[in-house]
Structure formats: structure tokens, C-alpha cells
């Protein structure tokens, strides 16, 4: 494995021109994330966490600055190249699950492989095995509406790991769940992260959740106010 950071963020700003006035959402962000880290990005609502996550995944482009994934600069790539990059390197977990309502649980999990044109028998085996890991083996033919919130988020987790991405981004993954389900999802997230060997970046404003991270970056009004390694580091390694 190479030693360069899996993710580098250099002087990234993001501002939006609403026509009436300019809103500066991110005002100069810099950090590197090493392979295998479990980073929690914290901050109050409206501090710019989701915006930052979107930039990291190439869903949106920064106003200035650059972002590197595995040493490759993603700022300036065209849409299709970014899509391919996301498919190969990034797994997503969203606050509101974001499953495709017209596909079954299994098909949702398989979807990233299908979009890559690799919906092989092995891929199907993997999808089933992931569903088994999140405890939904026998719900695989259910549609999202037939699943509870916690179950949907577990399907979303399985989907995020489908392509064995080096980088997993999660935006408030437990935000819509009660604490029992939240605990379950978090435990699964950490287990999968460990077994799949991905780097995990988790956006949350939940201190308890962040406590499991090896590193906590705190945002306030679009700038990093603190960036510290935690004691959880030893436990996770």
C-alpha cells in the first residue's frame, strides 16, 4: 500500500451567489486523511458539513482550491470521469437512506456493480453476503417501502460497501433513526469498515457517535476550528 493520503483537501472554498448576495459556505479548508482513518466531521447545523462532503465526492465543485483522492486531482474532472471515480472509490451513506424505491433490497445493493457493467454472479454473491452481514438476508426481495428506517439504512450500508471502495462517506447516517437502530447501524458501519479496510469519513453533530472516531474535525461557519486525534484511535486499530 502506498503512503500518500487517501484524501487531500487544499485551500478549498465554496461560495454561492444567490443573486442578491454572496454566501460563503466554506472559507478555506485544508486537511489530509490517511488510509484506514475513521474521521468524524462535526459542527452545528448549517456549518457547511454536507457541502464539504459533497465536494469531497465530486458531487459539486469548489469555488477555489483542490481536492485529491488517491493522489489524483478531482477538481476539474468532467462529470463522467467523476461518476466513474465515485463508482470505483467512494461509498455513500446518507441521512435519508436514498434507496431507489423501484428496486428491491438486493437490486439496490447490486446497483453500483450494475452501473459499472459488472453485475456478475460473483457480484450477486457479494450483494447477498453483504445483505446477510447486515442481517437482511431474508428481506432481499423487499422493496424500500416495505422496510423500516433502520432496515433501509442497513441496505444502504451494504450498497455503500458493494464496490469495496477505499473511501466511505456518511452524512448523518443515524440522524433519522432512534437510538437503538442508530447504535445498530453504527456498529455495522464500524464492523464493515474494519473488515473491508476502508477509510471512513462520517459527518455528524452527535458527540456520542463522534466518540468512536479516531479523529474529529470540527467545522464552524465554514472553517475548521479544531482537528484532533482521539483516544479511540487505539481501540479501532
Amino acid at each position: 500500500m502506498n503512503n500518500e493520503p487517501v484524501l487531500s483537501v487544499r485551500a478549498v472554498t465554496k461560495s454561492i451567489d444567490t443573486g442578491v448576495h454572496r454566501v460563503e459556505i466554506l472559507r478555506g479548508i485544508d486537511f489530509d486523511i490517511e488510509r484506514g482513518e475513521f474521521v468524524a466531521i462535526m459542527g452545528a447545523s448549517g456549518s457547511g458539513k454536507s457541502t464539504l462532503l459533497g465536494l469531497l465526492a465530486g458531487l459539486d465543485s469548489p469555488t477555489s482550491g483542490s481536492i485529491f483522492i488517491d493522489g489524483e486531482e478531482i477538481t476539474g474532472l468532467d462529470e463522467d470521469a467523476l461518476a466513474a471515480l465515485r463508482n470505483r472509490k467512494i461509498g455513500f451513506v446518507f441521512q435519508s437512506y436514498q434507496l431507489i424505491p423501484t428496486l428491491t433490497a438486493e437490486e439496490n445493493v447490486l446497483l453500483p456493480a450494475e452501473l459499472a457493467g459488472e453485475a456478475t454472479t460473483e457480484a450477486l454473491d457479494r450483494a447477498r453476503q453483504l445483505l446477510d452481514t447486515v442481517g437482511l438476508a431474508e428481506r432481499r426481495d423487499h422493496y424500500p417501502v416495505q422496510l423500516s428506517g433502520g432496515e433501509q439504512q442497513r441496505v444502504a450500508l451494504a450498497r455503500a460497501f458493494m464496490r469495496k471502495p477505499p473511501l466511505l462517506l456518511a452524512d448523518e447516517p443515524t440522524g433519522n433513526l432512534d437510538s437503538a437502530n442508530g447504535q445498530h447501524v453504527l456498529a455495522l458501519l464500524r464492523d464493515l469498515n474494519r473488515s473491508e479496510g476502508a477509510t471512513l469519513i462520517l459527518v455528524t453533530h452527535d458527540k456520542e457517535l463522534a466518540a468512536h472516531a479516531t479523529r474529529i474535525i470540527t467545522l464552524k461557519d465554514g472553517i475548521i476550528t479544531s482537528d484532533e486525534r482521539t483516544t479511540a484511535q487505539a481501540e479501532s486499530r
Binding site: A57, L59, E79, D80, A83, A84, L85, R86, N87, R88, F92, Q98, L99, I100, L111, P112, L115, A116, R159
Partner: peptide, 11 residues
């Protein structure tokens, strides 16, 4: 969502 999961426009 499809775009997030890596779908190209053409797809």
C-alpha cells in the same frame, strides 16, 4: 442517487 453511485449521464 444514480449519479452519486457512479452512473454516467448516458446511462
Amino acid at each position: 442517487i444514480l449519479k452519486c453511485l457512479g452512473a454516467r449521464n448516458a446511462q
